[in-house]
Amino acid sequence: MTEYNFAYLDEQTKRMIRRAILKGLAIPGYQVPFASREMPMPYGWGTGGVQVSAAVLTPEDRFKVIDQGADDTTNAVSIRGFFERTAGVATTTHTEEATVIQTRHRIPEVPLREGQILVYQVPIPEPLRFLEPRESETRKMHSLEEYGLMHVKLYEDISRHGHIATSYAYPVRVEARYVMDPSPIPKFDNPKLGDCAAIQLFGAGREQRIYALPPYTQVVSLDFEDHPFDPSKADHPCGLCGATNSYLDEVIVDDAGGRMFVCSDTDYCEARQAQGHRGKDAA
């Protein structure tokens, strides 16, 4: 078996990704093209996040991977195992202990701190893609700050449904300039994007884009004066830890319509239970 380089990628590829990350940080919300490599895992399964993580990890880091907020979902387990093997880094499930966190679809409940890096896996980095499928056109729209189409789409939702009918991957405006896709996080997580103490990096492997939010960047979810952004979530406490302020998974517990709600952030939920918090469904 051939020995792979530290964190799998060769140094030249890492330099290319590192340069893209720096430009991404210098132009918050702008999607930097990068020559994404073929990774030993499928496109769409986190290859962008994996390449960004590989480019930022040092041997001393403590790495956490979550998918849907949980450390033990199969793809999170797989990616964590990949870096344990190829980078030899220590791993953790505790948000506070981690220095680099790779995530799919969630931002941890515990506020992140300085010194931490949150790496998002991004499927479709272009927030305008579903309005305009052509890259050549959306690039022009970003360069001209032509975001009217996005507002029209959101407004059409309101006229049809009475609400903006986007509940995840809810678009944001960064520093009053670029409209950015925050990856398919629930809109509940959107408020955590702005003024975050950690560095946030976004990697889209198949679409070959990297973008970034430096700490304490102004990030505003798109809305209208008469229809302000609403980050609400299911109105239930967690069945296990009783938390009322966390994002919840709905679990079907029997075939008679029984269901319960539990924290999607498993580390947060376990920590609360360890502190003695109990929900109504806890043992």
């Binding site: 499928p42 496109y43 769409g44 849907q68 009475g162 509940s167 198949r206 999607s264």
Partner: peptide
């Protein structure tokens, strides 16, 4: 086909979070 199959098949991965947010929205509407 490597890009296509990866992205196509990724919808097998968990999407509990996104689906939950849609579920709440549809219930509300």
């Amino acid at each position: 086909n490597i890009q296509a199959t990866g992205f196509l098949e990724h919808i097998k991965l968990p999407h509990y979070v996104d689906f939950q947010s849609e579920l709440e929205l549809v219930r509300k509407l």
